[in-house]
Write a protein that binds this DNA or RNA. Structure first.
Lengths: 152, 152
DNA sequence: ACAAACCGTTGTACTATACAACCGAGACCG
DNA sequence: CGGTCTCGGTTGTATAGTACAACGGTTTGT
């Protein structure tokens, strides 16, 4: 394979991921007008790691703590998460999904899953597995490599 | 491969793409603080298809025309695109990048490319090509199959 | 005991976006 | 022609998501 091919692939990956990102939010919003995308993501994380803190979420998703704080306020307003004081450290709040939160999450995940299933219907199991593996690998590289702004 | 494996892959793909989408904007913004970015995407499209109209952009990116209108206003304010009246139809505006627009675009593309190169440094050319192909296939499925229930 | 580090909230500002109301230009029908 | 319908684009308004900075309590290290 020539050197140019490598560059072309990188360029293609860049374009396609960008295209995907552009559409993702809007698509998610259309799919679930009730549970905003980001809230959904945070709720899922809280469910997976019940008892985590706001700071954990901020670190994991590279979000500002103020953003997380407001998202959590929103989720609490919706009755989907609970914030309990940590007995060991009065600064931190331990996060747990409520019963309703688990219910909404399950339903949201189901319909998201259905949408993806639909889109990926024609793919072979092998292709799905390989695509998934590539995405995991890519995202792992991104998270471990914090991008710095260039001086201009 | 079991049935469950297929589901697991779909779920993984969903999670990873979502994770990517969550980070993409922030990463782009960090990378290019100067070019209010998504504008970058539109600028690139205008460059590729010089002479296109705002409506074309809206259709292609599934954006509201008001959004495109404001983005274009911003790009024009920055001196990166020109809006010329279409001689054949006085309603439409024909879009062209300015000299400066082409310059900024080239520089932006270069540093984006560099960032992706960095991230994908360890990948083999074959893996890159396969990953790119999967992304293209996935995005093609999404665009050709717009699951929009709100049929007005 | 005091300062530094830390967790979370709040004030402010900005981008991106949608929807709806509108305006001016073409198109088309009678 | 003239009325109306459609189309491209702008503007008003609203919302989500986000960052940064300043702050108030809490813990920790010296």
């Amino acid at each position: 394979m020539s050197e140019g091919a490598r560059e072309t692939s990188v360029d293609l990956i860049q374009r396609e991921l960008t295209a995907f990102a552009r559409r993702a939010r809007a698509a998610a919003a259309r799919l679930h007008p009730d549970l905003p995308l980001v809230s959904y993501t945070l709720l899922a994380h809280i469910h997976d790691r019940a008892g985590c803190s706001a700071t954990d979420l901020a670190a994991h998703y590279l979000l500002d703590k103020s953003t997380v704080s407001r998202q959590l306020a929103s989720l609490e307003r919706l009755g989907l998460v609970e914030r309990r004081p940590d007995p060991g450290d009065h600064r931190v709040q331990v996060l747990h999904p409520t019963q309703e939160g688990r219910r909404v999450l399950a339903s949201t995940q189901a319909s998201r899953q259905a949408a993806y299933e639909e889109r990926l219907r024609d793919w072979s199991a092998d292709d799905l597995a390989r695509f998934a593996a590539y995405l995991v690998r890519y995202n792992a590289a991104v998270t471990s490599d914090p991008p710095k702004p260039p001086r201009r």
